[in-house]
Amino acid sequence: MAKQNIKPRVRIGKKLKKGDVFEVKTLVRHSMESGQRKSKKTGKNYPRLILNRLHVTYSGNVVLNAIWHPGVSANPYTSFYAVADKSGPMKFTWTDDAGETFDKTVQVKVDG
């Protein structure tokens, strides 16, 4: 199967100074098939296929490790906070049930 395009989007605060606590918002496009939904044609449940993990690293640290289950909505949105340390990449990795990974990197700019 071709790799899904999950269109990851990430938003972070702009004018950051060292030590600031800033919000990070992420949104991806994914149907998050829960495995609970029945197909009317076959009477069987659609197989489960969700993103089960979101791993975020920044400035050499893991800032978020989220473990998701079918209770998370389709097109999962997540926001969390991080402390501005130094300018550098913030790396996001989503993993789905099939073991496929989806990446996104954003540059965090910290003044001074």
Binding site: V21, S34, Y58, S59, N61, V62, V63, L64, N65, A66, I67, W68, H69, P70, G71, V72, S73, N75, P76, Y77, T78, S79, F80, Y81, A82, V83, D85
Partner: peptide, 20 residues
């Protein structure tokens, strides 16, 4: 539903998500 693992680099223990 979910588990969010945080650490001292978060500054604030607050997360948001959308659930079923």
């Amino acid at each position: 539903i979910a588990t969010f693992q945080l650490g001292p680099h978060n500054g604030k223990a607050e997360v948001a998500l959308r659930i079923r």
